[in-house]
């Protein structure tokens, strides 16, 4: 049986959540049938649950605010922001209301709220529809950040997010929607994966101690695996990849246990540099790996630039497999 595409897996996960919990409400722009969302992730929900799914006006601030109100009143609220770039319009609701409400009234107030954001570039949408804005939401007390991946089951992920009771943003790499989920521990002929404590580890079917450990998140998985193969076949460098699903707060323990023996570590993200998730990971790990690292943790980013629309220009700016391969060679060979 072929594995579902990531968009379908997300869709199935949402259908299951709706069936399991009658307090689940979903809202966003153009999420209802027959359209089913700009990326079709919400297809079928409004037909099956007409009273629990709503198209909203083009009002990101209000739709995230409404979701916060629903969660406050005891509902399970799932909001979709059509492109992650527009989450800036809901910044106040996330940073000043939902996240702060969990603590600012002097007691813990759980909120079952997740804001889903189709994220990232490599799809030609141009400067205002391609960004990886995770870094703008990093470090907010009471706000958790997650990223979907082709290795993490989306129903498990969404359940974990909502049961955590901490308002969350789920970034979904748009490049993933049309890709298939990986299943059965297999990536390809050379690589397999396993999952432990929310972190997926990709390594050779017959593992050997790696020269380098690469840490990344969902949207970068395919580019990273491509780099892994090139590094192995052409550069004789063995690398392993750790794919996290919770970006923030950084889960240090599983990363440390999996990077333990590595002498070289890199973090790969599609974001531009400066106050990023990758920097948070490096900050979390570095003091513990300090004694064994052969060189500082390397951050691999896109160029400090807006994201052009034309494919050849966009490729120049965003991290590609070649960018990763080049950076890892430098890291390993100095």
């Amino acid at each position: 049986m072929t594995a579902p595409r990531v968009a379908n897996d997300l869709n199935t996960a949402l259908h299951r959540l709706f069936a399991e919990d009658e307090r689940v409400i979903l809202l966003g722009e153009d999420v209802c049938d027959p359209y089913g969302g700009a990326f079709k992730v919400t297809r079928g929900l409004s037909t099956r649950y007409p009273h629990r799914v709503r198209n909203t006006p083009i009002s990101e601030g209000a739709l995230v605010g409404v979701a916060g109100g629903l969660a406050l009143a005891g509902d399970t609220a799932i909001a979709e922001v059509m492109f992650a770039d527009f989450v800036t319009l809901a910044f106040d609701q996330l940073v000043n209301f939902a996240s702060k409400s969990t603590a600012m009234y002097g007691r813990h107030l759980p909120l079952r709220l997740v804001v889903r954001c189709p994220t990232g570039g490599n799809r030609g949408y141009g400067p205002t529809h391609s960004q990886t804005p995770q870094k703008h939401l990093i470090g907010v007390p009471g706000l958790a950040l997650y990223e979907a991946s082709p290795l993490h089951d989306n129903h498990t992920l969404l359940t974990r997010i909502l049961d955590g009771g901490v308002p969350a943003v789920l970034f979904e790499g748009k490049v993933l929607y049309g890709e298939r989920m990986f299943t059965g521990g297999v990536i390809d002929d050379l690589y397999g994966y396993d999952l432990a404590d929310g972190v997926a580890r990709i390594r050779l079917h017959d593992p050997v101690p790696p020269d380098c450990v690469l840490i990344t998140s969902g949207a970068m998985v395919h580019r990273t695996v491509e780099a892994l193969r090139e590094l192995l076949l052409h550069d004789e460098i063995v690398a392993e990849v750790l794919v996290v699903s919770r970006l923030y707060p950084v889960e240090r323990a599983p990363l440390l246990s999996l990077t333990g023996p590595a002498r070289r570590v890199a973090v790969i993200e599609e974001s531009t540099a400066g106050g990023t998730w990758g920097a948070e990971v490096a900050t979390a790990l570095h003091p513990h790996l300090w004694g064994t690292l052969a060189s500082p943790i390397r951050l691999i980013h896109s160029l400090d630039s807006i994201i052009p629309a034309a494919a050849h220009l966009e490729r120049q700016v965003l991290v590609q497999s070649g960018t990763i391969r080049h950076a890892v060679k430098e890291l390993v060979h100095g």
Binding site: A62, G65, V66, G69, L72, G74
Partner: peptide, 10 residues
Amino acid sequence: LPVAAGVAWN
């Protein structure tokens, strides 16, 4: 206002 709207919907 939007938060109150969400509560009103509930």
